[in-house]
């Protein structure tokens, strides 16, 4: 990963760290700040976390707060929900969003539903961390991007964390949220380094972020893909096309106001995501632009997503399936009538 975090600028009081370390610092801050916080999940303790995010936390905080669980996704999420309803602030980890499907019943039928179904009596302040994304040749049961499945559901907040600032700043507001929050992390970014302020900023969970201002075309994306999009934007700039890159960041609720304001300036929009295009977040964003910003457009909204296949193992097939700098550049040029 060669991309850098566009939101941070080196200043005298900065420190260099990986995204993995940023996630870990956030967890440590949460554990230090609130004694009701505890972590539970598979191999988060003795093993150190499957992506090493929780490495060392068991020694620091002990087994009561860093709770290794059996391979029981239903019980992990359901138990965290119950604990959240009874005074605790659990952070449950599901290794990858492919595995989160095993816990989908608990997430949707309980976490997202109980407040409404109980007439406002039982809120569920649970945080669920999981991961998404391809790029490591892990094939179809470890590589998918299921953010849209969760963003479909009223009653849960869905946030994607692909920058150091977001990784470090997200947990405090997520834990203060009285309702369920699902955080998506991205394994292929874990070793990405950035220069960050010593003291992290708090992140607004509900807003999109403009990662690169531009005037010619709005490129809307989220998650790890934004770094590919930012690389594409630099390539386009060399070609005289100034792309504005928006990271949705909050996938539910969607900060469509930021998207509409950008489209009003650029008059063109391309949506790029690593999930399948069909019935995805890109489709939702394109629909909202069509509903609310149609007369600002000089060209139809374009969408780039994952090829409609289960992600394959072979590197050339995997690369071809997900958005790449070249495919993004080509699509933006087409929308700019420069193809």
């Amino acid at each position: 990963m060669t991309a850098t975090d566009a939101t941070t600028r080196p200043t005298p009081e900065t420190v260099r760290m990986t995204l993995r370390e940023a996630h870990k610092q956030s967890l440590r801050a949460a554990l230090d700040h609130d004694e009701r916080v505890f972590l539970m999940g598979e191999d988060i303790g003795a093993y150190g976390g499957c992506f090493a995010v929780t490495m060392g936390l068991l020694d620091e905080y002990g087994p009561e707060r860093i709770r290794d669980t059996p391979l029981s996704e239903i019980a992990i999420v359901g138990t965290a929900i119950g604990a959240a309803m009874n005074g605790m602030r659990p952070i449950a980890e599901i290794m990858t969003c492919n595995f989160s499907l095993l816990a989908m019943d608990q997430i949707i039928n309980n976490a997202a539903t109980l407040l409404h179904m109980s007439g406002g009596q039982f809120n569920v302040p649970v945080v669920i961390r999981t991961t998404a994304g391809a790029g490591r040749q892990l094939a179809a049961q470890h590589s998918h991007s299921f953010e849209p499945y969760f963003a479909h559901v009223p009653g849960i907040r869905v946030v994607s964390l692909a920058t150091h600032a977001d990784a470090r700043g997200v947990l405090a507001p997520a834990l203060e949220d009285p309702d369920p929050v699902i955080l998506f992390e991205y394994p292929r970014l874990m070793t990405m380094e950035a220069e960050v302020p010593v003291d992290p900023d708090i992140v607004d969970l509900s807003s999109a972020a403009i990662r690169r201002p531009g005037s010619d075309v709005t490129v809307v994306t989220y998650g790890a893909t934004q770094h590919t999009v930012l690389d594409a934007a630099e390539a386009l700039a060399a070609d005289g096309i100034d792309a504005e890159v928006i990271d949705l960041r909050s996938l539910r609720p969607l900060d469509d106001a930021t998207v509409f304001a950008s489209v009003a300036r650029t008059h063109r929009a391309v949506v790029v995501e690593e999930a399948w295009r069909t019935v995805g977040l890109g489709a939702e964003v394109a629909a909202r632009i069509a509903e609310e910003a149609f007369y600002d457009l000089d060209a139809p909204v374009a969408r780039i997503g994952c090829a409609e296949v289960p992600l394959p193992y072979a590197k050339h097939l995997e690369d071809a399936a997900i958005p790449q700098v070249e495919s993004i550049v080509a699509e933006v040029r087409r929308v700019m009538h420069r193809g």
Partner: peptide, 17 residues
């Protein structure tokens, strides 16, 4: 069976508190 893990979580919170 959807309520069963919930009960386990309620009990975990009671124990931790």
């Amino acid at each position: 069976a959807g309520g069963i893990p919930l009960a386990v979580g309620l009990a975990l919170a009671d124990k931790l508190q």
